[in-house]
Every structure is written in structure tokens, then in C-alpha cells.
Amino acid sequence: MKKTIIILISLTIFSVFPFKFDASANSDKSSSEIVIVINNWSSQMVLSRIVGSLFNEMGYDVSYAKMEISQQWGALARGIAHVQVEVWEGTMDKMFNKMVEQGRIIDAGAYTATTREEWWYPDYVEEYCPGLPDWKALKKCYKIFAVPETYPKGRYLAGPWEKPEESRIRGLDLNFATIIVKESNELWIELDKAYKEKKPIVLFNWTPNWIDIYYKGKFIEFPEYDPKCDTDPSWGINPYYMYDCGNPKSGWLKKAAWSGINKKWPGSLQALKNVSLDSRMFAQMTALMVVDKMPPEQAAQKWIKDNYKLWESWVPVNFKKRKTDE
């Protein structure tokens, strides 16, 4: 209980004093805070706080830096930020693998949860568009997804992340237009609205996601992913264009850290590696924020409280001993 109070206090402090980014901050500077990257989707926001609490538990100061995915790699490589708790294969594999190969960042291990990012629809849409989840069904019933902005083309609701969706539509010759939302929450608002009215909708979704708990649906099954699909136009069903395939299935979800993290903050890398969640846990954790409308700090606090033993097990042994000695 005492620990929980400490964690809560620390989380409150972080929320009251927003992150102040120092442009000159890097491993050589006197900054002693472990900087955790904050992205713009719910699970990442909550999980970052949970991991931050873990470092606090180890005795390290932590700060949070909100940045785009595109910004995080340079920050992690330069030691401006030190930890990214969610690296999705579907969207970040190339940069992650390159950075790891160059030794600029450290692969801090994968979660047990596997990931998939793809076009998704609620189950009831199958009634309007027989043949789903096969992508070819979209070629016939695209009009049911049309909205005034896209008519006669069907609407595909995409997230605020850079994805080659337009290329995929062209490669697979789909009669769809992409509408990109500004924030991921807009996706769920649209989904909820359509879901309640049983209106056809196809949108970007991923797993693990809290959506899994509340909305039943399926990913569109596009042609199987192959690395050549992203690089070789002749590969796939369309010999002229790339991206004539779906996203990888059962992708990994990993953690990344600055290459010098363990030297500066001994044990921190091990702690990060220890962090592991399955898909269900991810969904539950995210739901605290999205469904229960908790701020990420509060959601993290709630999650730690509910999963304290698991959370505590992630603290490296050495630090537990030291704490015991104290």
C-alpha cells in the first residue's frame, strides 16, 4: 500500500509538471532522468507510465517526452529519449531493425502478445457484403461503405499514422477513398456510431487493442504479406505496383531502449526486458483509459494496483535485494 501511495504521488507529480524537453539533453549531459517516449495511442500512454513507475521503483527519476513515431528513433539513438515501450512490427519494424543493426538502440524484448494492424470491420458488415473477410468482396460492395465525401467510392477510415493505404488501394485496384482521422479516438467514435446503427464501416484497427473486448469484428484478409511486396512492383497480383498485399499477421510487439541505458541506469534494461503482457492484458489496460475515461496516469495507477504482483516481478532481483537491505 505504501508503495502504491509512492507511485501515485510520483505519477501525480509527473502529470502536474509537464515534460520539459531539453534540446541539449543526451547521455553526456547531467540529466539523470530516464526519458520515456509517449506516443498518441492509449495502450502506449498507459504502459509508458507503468514502466515509468517501475523505474521509479528502482530508484531512478523518470520523465516523459511526447513525440511522433517518426521523431522517436533519432531521439532514442541519440539518448535524448531512452525508452519506447511499444514497437509494433506492422508500422515500426524497418526503423527498429535498422537502428538495432546499427547498434543505436537495444531490442529490449517482445511481449507475448502478437500484433496485427489491418483493415477491420464489425461482424455485422458481413451481412451487407458477402464474401468478407476476403478482400475481393470489397471490390463488389464498395458502395455500401460510401459516405457523401467519398461517393461513389467506399470510405476507408485510416488512423493518424503514416501507412501506405493509398498505395494498397491502388495496388489492389479497390474502389475506395481514404479518410484519415486526426486522432485514434475518432476511429472509435466512428466505429461506435456505426456499430450502434449497424452501418457498414471499414476502418484501421490493430490488436491487441481494447476494441477486442467491446466490438466483435474481423480483419480483412488481403493477399499474404511478403517483404518483396513493399519493394518489388512485379511481386504480387499487380505486376505494376507495390503494396498489393496485406500487413504482416501475428507481428511482434517489442520494447526499445537507448544503447547506453544500462550503463547509465544499471538494471533498467533488465527491468524493461522483464516487462511482458499478453493481448488480453493490453486490451484491459487500454480500456481503463478509453472506456473508463481515466487519464493515462490514473489508468496506470489502477492497472498497477490490479496487477501489482506481476508488476513487482519485473523489478530486477538486485534492486529488490537492495530495497530489502534498506
Binding site: 531539453d22 534540446a23 511526447k66 513525440m67 533519432g74 535524448i80
Partner: peptide, 11 residues
Amino acid sequence: EYFLLNNPIKV
């Protein structure tokens, strides 16, 4: 310079 959170960083 790369702008990270509106702060310029010479890269």
C-alpha cells in the same frame, strides 16, 4: 536542425 517538440537540435 531537427525540431523535436519545437526545440531545434543540430543534427
